[in-house]
Amino acid sequence: MLTIQLPHTIDSDQQGFASLANIYQQVKPCQFETIQLDFQNTTWFDANMLAMLGAIMESAWTNDFDIVNLRPEQEKIFKKTRYSYFGGESLPDSYQTTVEYRKSKVSEIGSFEKYLEKKLLAHSKMPSMSALLRKKIKESILEIFNNARTHGKCKFVFSCGQYYPQKGRLDFTIVDIGNTIRKNVRDYSGRKVSGKKAIEWAVRENTTTRKDNIPGGLGFTLIRDFLRKNKGKIQITSADGYWFEKNDKSVSKKLDVFFKGTAVNLEFNINDTSSYCLSSEIEDMDIAF
């Protein structure tokens, strides 16, 4: 039996991603074993980061996982998200601070879109955001889902979210255990690019690793444009790279541990009162094909 001690906290930041990637590294070689995830020292676990823990447990599906020493308040939060380890058992979320954990087949973007509508945007604790802000949040998440499908070439996408009403933010994490951004950029460029450099390139405007007849390279640009206006944050972990952008400042770093997949955390400012008015109205007839 393998016992893995979880750290003191798992936050939605570089350290949180690195700690979970470290768990991935430990479970990766195991087959048909019992793996104990010991939460004895863990006093905080951002619910949205369950998306990454779920993806890691799925990647090592031949093993039996035991979650032990989980504090009652943590267990409550995990169950409020209907985290699948508990077999879908759920607890009422009276303060409604979590967005349900979900393992989605990549082929089912339609039902993922409905999940976002029902579990995220119709959430009673969501402030009265403009319809356009809701639409932008949903479309940003769908762009990431599509990226996982097109570039990750994976079977499932894992997602989970948490509201922080007092901080006025919503964190939503999407994870796939598929081709990393580094692998895609290496295959495309024929160069031995680092994980950090690969993410930097992938998030630039108009870059894509597609070589077929469907153009790409806009998804991250649209999300970055929106999150800049929204004063939100985006973080990406893939292979041995980590990158984030907040307040017009982007930073990339090398992770000491390798994660064979891609995790994206989107942090939305839900108190955003921007009207998202467009600078100039475009008429249908003005669209110049």
Binding site: E113, L142, N146, I214, P215, L218, G219, L222
Partner: peptide, 8 residues
């Protein structure tokens, strides 16, 4: 709801 993926 409209994504760049669909329009691409």
């Amino acid at each position: 709801t409209l994504t760049s993926t669909f329009l691409n």
